[in-house]
C-alpha cells in the first residue's frame, strides 16, 4: 500500500525533554490513522513535524511522497490541517473565514462559493454563515475549524484533537464525517486522548513519553490483549495493558 505519511527515527527535544523519541510511523492512503495517548505523549509535536511546522533533531519525514521540509511546496494545498487552537479569525464571519482559506489555497472564486455552501451544509453551519467566528459556541468553532481544513478537498487531513471538548452527540457526528471522508478517498491522521475513539480508526498507534509503543488494527490489538488476560478488553484496557508492558 502507498504511504501518505512516512516517518523514520524522528527525534525532537525541547531543552531536556525529549518530546518525540525515535518514532517510526507510516500512514497509508485512504485510512484513518489514530495517534492515541495521554496529554504530553508527544502527539502534537509529531504531527507538527509532519506538517513542516516544527524542525526535528533527527530522522526523516515524507508527506505525499515528498521530503519535509524540502518538498513542502509540493504538499501545500494538498494537506489540510486542523490545529488544536482551532485557528480561526475571531473577527471574520464563518463565511469570510472559509473564503480566506479557500483563496489562500488557490481555489477559483466561482468554485469557492459553491464549495463553501456545500461544506457549510455538510458541517451544519449554513444558518451561522454570517455570524462572527468569535461569537460561536465551542462545538461550532470546532466544526468551522474542521470545515476550513476540508475546504480545498485535501488528499491528506491532519487533525489535532479534533473532538476534544465536544459532547458525545457531536463527537459521534464528527466521526461520521471522518468515515464519509475516508470513503471519499481522503487519508486522515488524527490525534486523540479519548481511548474509546481508537476503536473507530482504521489503524491506531499508542504514544507514550515520546515513543510509539504499539500500533495495529484496533481489533488485532484487542485480540492480543484478550489472549494475554482473557475477556473482551475495551480500548482503554488495551492501552493500559501496553502502557504497563512498556514500563516493565
Amino acid at each position: 500500500m502507498e504511504a501518505a505519511v512516512e516517518v523514520q527515527g524522528a527525534v525532537k527535544s525541547f531543552g531536556l525533554v525529549r518530546a518525540v523519541d525515535g518514532v517510526d510511523l507510516r500512514v497509508f492512503r485512504g485510512e484513518i490513522y489514530g495517534l492515541v495517548g495521554p496529554s504530553g505523549a508527544g502527539k502534537t509535536t509529531l504531527i507538527r513535524m509532519i506538517c513542516g511546522l516544527l524542525g526535528r533533531d533527527a530522522g526523516e519525514v515524507r508527506v505525499l511522497g515528498h521530503p519535509i521540509p524540502e518538498g513542502k511546496r509540493h504538499v501545500e494545498g494538498r494537506l489540510g490541517y486542523m490545529p488544536q487552537e482551532r485557528a480561526l479569525y475571531r473577527d471574520l464571519t464563518v463565511e469570510e473565514n472559509l473564503l480566506f482559506f479557500g483563496q489562500l489555497n488557490g481555489m477559483p472564486r466561482g468554485e469557492i462559493r459553491d464549495r463553501i455552501a456545500e461544506i457549510l451544509e455538510f458541517m451544519r453551519l449554513s444558518h451561522l454563515a454570517v455570524h462572527l467566528a468569535g461569537n460561536l459556541s465551542g462545538g461550532e468553532k470546532q466544526r468551522l475549524s474542521l470545515a476550513c481544513a476540508l475546504l480545498s478537498k485535501p488528499e491528506l487531513l491532519v487533525l489535532d484533537e479534533p473532538t476534544v471538548g465536544l459532547d458525545p452527540a457531536l463527537r459521534q457526528e464528527f466521526w461520521e464525517h471522518f468515515h464519509e471522508l475516508k470513503d471519499e478517498g481522503h487519508t486522515i491522521l488524527l490525534t486523540t486522548h479519548y481511548l474509546e475513539e481508537a476503536g473507530r480508526c482504521s489503524r491506531v498507534g499508542f504514544m507514550r513519553a515520546g515513543r510509539l509503543q504499539v500500533e495495529g488494527l484496533p481489533a488485532e490489538l484487542q485480540a492480543r490483549v484478550a489472549q494475554a488476560v482473557g475477556g473482551t478488553p475495551s480500548m482503554e484496557e488495551v492501552f493500559l495493558f501496553f502502557a504497563r508492558k512498556g514500563v516493565e
Partner: peptide, 13 residues
Amino acid sequence: VDGTFERLWISPL
C-alpha cells in the same frame, strides 16, 4: 496566539 499562523504556513502563502 490564535494559531492561524500555522494554517497560513501550511497553505501556499
